[in-house]
Computed example of a mutant assay.
Amino acid sequence: MQHTRYITVDLEIRSSLPFHKLVDFFEKADEYAHLHFDKDTNEWSISSSLDPKHSPNACIVYYIEWIKSFPDDVRQEWGHAHQKCMNIGYSVSSSHWGFVENISSDTLAEMAALGLSLAVTLYPIDMQENYIDTEGE
């Protein structure tokens, strides 16, 4: 049976201004971040797949502390962003009756204090060619 499961959390950031110092901070922390400029929208963006940890809540809590450690120049670029989002990804199965994942109220409050929104992306298993069921492992 195919199982619904948590995959990762992506940090997505958008701004009308470039954020090179933020990208440098990512790289120094050995976190992948690709800076992209979209000519159609005149926006800069970063989408970074974070180390997933053992749950989305644990991942978000870990990276909230990381974001709080930004030096002033990086924090300034962070402040210019008009979108800051933690996007949780799941492989979802139609054969699973239900699936529950908890993001604690403390985590949500910390996210709100940093201007972070929360998104959930669902990837249907039956549309994934490379899906490997690791539930039994």
Results as ranks from 00 to 15, higher is better:
residue 68 K to D: 11
residue 41 T to L: 00
residue 55 S to R: 09
residue 71 P to R: 02
residue 83 Q to T: 15
residue 78 W to K: 12
residue 41 T to G: 00
residue 65 E to K: 11
residue 87 N to W: 06
residue 71 P to S: 05
residue 84 K to M: 15
residue 86 M to Y: 09
residue 74 V to W: 00
residue 66 W to V: 08
residue 39 K to W: 02
residue 38 D to W: 13
residue 64 I to N: 09
residue 52 P to G: 11
residue 41 T to D: 01
residue 42 N to R: 03
residue 45 S to N: 03
residue 69 S to G: 02
residue 69 S to N: 02
residue 68 K to W: 06
residue 63 Y to P: 06
residue 66 W to H: 07
residue 72 D to E: 10
residue 68 K to T: 07
residue 59 C to R: 05
residue 54 H to Q: 12
residue 42 N to I: 00
residue 79 G to Y: 02
residue 66 W to K: 06
residue 45 S to A: 02
residue 82 H to A: 12
residue 84 K to R: 15
residue 46 I to Y: 01
residue 51 D to Q: 09
residue 76 Q to G: 05
residue 56 P to T: 07
residue 44 W to A: 00
residue 58 A to N: 11
residue 76 Q to K: 10
residue 50 L to I: 08
residue 84 K to W: 12
residue 75 R to V: 07
residue 76 Q to A: 12
residue 45 S to Y: 00
residue 45 S to G: 04
residue 46 I to S: 02
residue 74 V to T: 05
residue 88 I to W: 02
residue 86 M to W: 05
residue 50 L to W: 05
residue 61 V to Q: 12
residue 73 D to E: 11
residue 47 S to H: 02
residue 44 W to V: 00
residue 82 H to N: 15
residue 62 Y to H: 15
residue 87 N to L: 14
residue 42 N to K: 04
residue 66 W to F: 10
residue 75 R to C: 09
residue 48 S to I: 06
residue 59 C to Q: 08
residue 50 L to F: 08
residue 67 I to C: 08
residue 77 E to R: 10
residue 86 M to A: 14
residue 41 T to S: 03
residue 63 Y to G: 09
residue 44 W to Q: 01
residue 72 D to R: 08
residue 88 I to D: 01
residue 81 A to R: 05
residue 49 S to K: 08
residue 87 N to R: 14
residue 80 H to T: 14
residue 44 W to H: 03
residue 71 P to A: 05
residue 46 I to E: 01
residue 83 Q to D: 11
residue 46 I to W: 00
residue 67 I to M: 11
residue 45 S to I: 00
residue 50 L to M: 12
residue 58 A to I: 08
residue 63 Y to Q: 08
residue 78 W to H: 14
residue 81 A to E: 09
residue 72 D to H: 07
residue 80 H to N: 15
residue 65 E to P: 06
residue 86 M to N: 05
residue 76 Q to Y: 10
residue 53 K to M: 14
residue 68 K to H: 10
residue 40 D to G: 07
residue 44 W to R: 00
residue 87 N to A: 14
residue 83 Q to L: 15
residue 83 Q to Y: 14
residue 64 I to W: 06
residue 69 S to D: 02
residue 79 G to I: 01
residue 87 N to V: 14
residue 85 C to F: 09
residue 49 S to R: 10
residue 69 S to Y: 01
residue 56 P to Q: 02
residue 83 Q to I: 15
residue 60 I to S: 01
residue 85 C to Y: 10
residue 84 K to Q: 13
residue 57 N to D: 14
residue 78 W to I: 15
residue 71 P to N: 02
residue 52 P to R: 13
residue 47 S to I: 11
residue 64 I to T: 08
residue 62 Y to P: 03
residue 77 E to P: 11
residue 51 D to A: 09
residue 55 S to N: 09
residue 50 L to D: 07
residue 63 Y to E: 08
residue 85 C to K: 14
residue 66 W to E: 08
residue 82 H to F: 15
residue 71 P to H: 03
residue 73 D to Y: 04
residue 81 A to G: 14
residue 82 H to Q: 13
residue 79 G to N: 09
residue 80 H to W: 15
residue 67 I to D: 04
residue 43 E to I: 00
residue 43 E to A: 01
residue 88 I to V: 15
residue 39 K to M: 04
residue 53 K to L: 13
residue 78 W to P: 12
residue 64 I to V: 11
residue 56 P to G: 03
residue 77 E to W: 07
residue 68 K to P: 04
residue 39 K to V: 04
residue 38 D to K: 10
residue 73 D to C: 04
residue 42 N to H: 04
residue 43 E to K: 02
residue 58 A to K: 07
residue 77 E to H: 12
residue 87 N to D: 13
residue 74 V to P: 01
residue 70 F to H: 05
